[in-house]
Design a protein around this nucleic acid. Structure first.
Lengths: 214, 214
DNA sequence: TATAATACGGAACAATGTTCCGTTTGTCAA
DNA sequence: TTGACAAACGGAACATTGTTCCGTATTATA
């Protein structure tokens, strides 16, 4: 399940051939920058000045630009990083809960991911070529993540088997438009309802719905 | 029909009370700026530098800022100006063609309006308070425009009477997403189809469909 | 035509993305 | 452990763009 296409580090070093290991301090800077950027984007939006991010990360602007040559590279990296975290959560949840519950919890985790990405989503459609590979990355990470959970839940007889992972991801993303104001309660309620819908037609009968309806 | 809420000039002078008439040179500058902005936005997008617009208008930056104190004011003005033009087209078309044809042509005119406003539409949802009044303006101008054409066509028995102007405007706006690349042919074909649909259930029978299907 | 209000142009300022380069640090072979 | 060098660091400096300010020019009016 956990088939992340590349190794750690997230910076923009040469991906192919004989690239040396990233230096420890560089990795520290990259981590600090990603964390700071995530926080700053959340508070001040994606248009926040890079200086603010560098400062919050306790790093010079030169360092920021060494790892993320353009502003858009940083944004894309944060996006990828968040996708990774969300995708990785699938394996963790799958190990900790039974298939149905893992699926339900991951769907809510996905809501958390989508709901905080309004600004970024807008940036995606800006035509900037830096963001072009992100949809592919989405397919490579999030889609298999849900697919695995879904298959497991179906195999366990906890949910019906005639729904598609892609469809679900799109549906939830659209439901998250109910959370424009940042309040995800309505979106979460609807997603829970959706999941209960999945459970409804399961082979194993006896459905005890969760409390999605208020 | 032509009930434009305010007089000409488009600048941001005091709307209420004892405002003097705009000076001739000022009006010239405003017109030149709106025209230049429209052109520049079309070529370089809404993020084009204001200097470029001022230059194209043959006007100093100071002049631009005198009439449009903020960049967003200029964008909003262009948007309003385009809405006006589109709304005004309704009356012209109504005078020139019979009700059904006028309706059909205006719908295509509306496609032209929407299709060139992708960047602006994104700006609308940016949360900038400058754009807040625009949806209201939309309702005041475009909705009545279509409503009038629709009523006339219904009264003439050329189209069915059970459709709503709002619904149509939304539908067409969504159909225009078929024209992301700037090519509106598909969108126009679909809209033509939509209009033929309107004609289909008309009280006056004998429907000769236009060539929407290729 | 004289006068005052208005508008004009563009230099100057401010904010922000990006580049450049001298200095520092981490890694590794001797 | 130490020396050398590639890599990374910080931040000043540059470039671009939104915005302000003010001296000059134009327009409307008496």
């Amino acid at each position: 399940m956990n088939d992340k296409p590349e190794e750690q580090s997230d910076g923009l070093e040469a991906r192919g051939g004989t690239d040396r290991r990233v230096r420890a301090d560089a990795q520290r800077s990259i981590d600090a920058l990603l964390q700071a950027a995530l926080a700053v984007f959340a508070t001040s939006g994606v248009d926040a000045p890079v200086r603010e991010i560098a400062e919050k990360a306790g790093v010079g602007i030169g360092t920021l630009y060494r790892h993320f040559p353009q502003r858009a590279d940083l944004i894309a990296a944060v996006f990828r990083h968040e996708m990774d975290a969300c995708a990785d959560a699938a394996a963790i949840l799958a190990a900790e809960y039974d298939p149905g519950e893992a699926l339900a919890r991951w769907m809510q985790r996905y809501v958390s991911f989508v709901a905080t990405k309004h600004g970024l989503a807008a940036a995606l459609h800006s035509g900037d070529p830096t963001f072009a590979p992100l949809p592919t990355y989405f397919d490579q990470r999030l889609r298999p993540a849900l697919h695995g959970l879904l298959d497991a839940a179906v195999a366990a007889g906890e949910v019906r088997d005639n729904v598609d992972a892609d469809e679900l991801l799109s549906a939830v993303a659209n439901l998250c438009r109910l959370a424009d104001d940042g309040d995800t309660t309505r979106a979460r309620r609807m997603v829970a309802l959706l999941v209960d819908g999945l459970r409804y037609g399961a082979s194993r009968s006896a459905n005890t719905p969760s409390d999605a309806t208020r």
